[in-house]
Design a protein around this nucleic acid. Sequence first.
DNA 1: TATTTGTACTATGCTGAGTAGTACAATTAT
DNA 2: ATAATTGTACTACTCAGCATAGTACAAATA
Lengths: 120, 120
Amino acid sequence: MLSLDLQSRIPIFEQIKAGLSRLIYLGILKSDEQLPTVRSLATQLGVNPNTVQKAYQQLEAAGLIYSVTGRGNFVRSGNSQQVIQNEQIQKRLKEIAQEAKNAGFPESMAILLIREVYNG
Amino acid sequence: MLSLDLQSRIPIFEQIKAGLSRLIYLGILKSDEQLPTVRSLATQLGVNPNTVQKAYQQLEAAGLIYSVTGRGNFVRSGNSQQVIQNEQIQKRLKEIAQEAKNAGFPESMAILLIREVYNG
DNA sequence: TATTTGTACTATGCTGAGTAGTACAATTAT
DNA sequence: ATAATTGTACTACTCAGCATAGTACAAATA
């Protein structure tokens, strides 16, 4: 369901967040569909349950999922409108990223540019 | 000359690397032009000289600059060919990033996509 | 000769990430 | 009813990376 890069400098809980966000935005995880339980996903990924919970908490704070004690975590409805548009953006981002890579454009600079645009 | 974001999760020495790389790739720093000395840049940025030296070391390892003990650090020649091409890539990256931001596309996902393309 | 510069160390503190363990309320299954 | 599952909330601990502080030395320059 998800894959992690434990060598990456990106924290595990961030990778989980990004991975689940991606599945939700792509519509692979549908509205009100149940996510893996905290403990099961932790076991599956080989990480600590607290790490998974941290990701789930922040996804809930971001409005992407909702939690019910005793039942589990579920996808919040209302994200499907953006799916098509986001697919286009993903496609174009990948294209330009590939081109940049081929041109020897440094990865660190590409990421820096993204951050600059997003954060003023 | 450079600006830092001390609140960022990106290490200072990485920001220095990216900033100087950018100036070199853009041709603002020309071949064989002298960079600020380790100590002066450290003072100017308000960081420890060791931090600046770390950035310079890695820039030298990357082939972007060269160091001469007792004289200073200088821009290595041979990067000008890529300048024009990289300007185009930067421009397009900024455009698509801005579009993504406006569409509510998460910054974390944009960066993740970049990383995926670069690192398989 | 004195100063500047790059370089190389060691030591220290700090922060965030991740892990380990426990506990409890709500829900579900038996 | 009872037990098991699940989300949640803690505390404590370890670890790695980053950054700082300080010192020292060789090479180049003033």
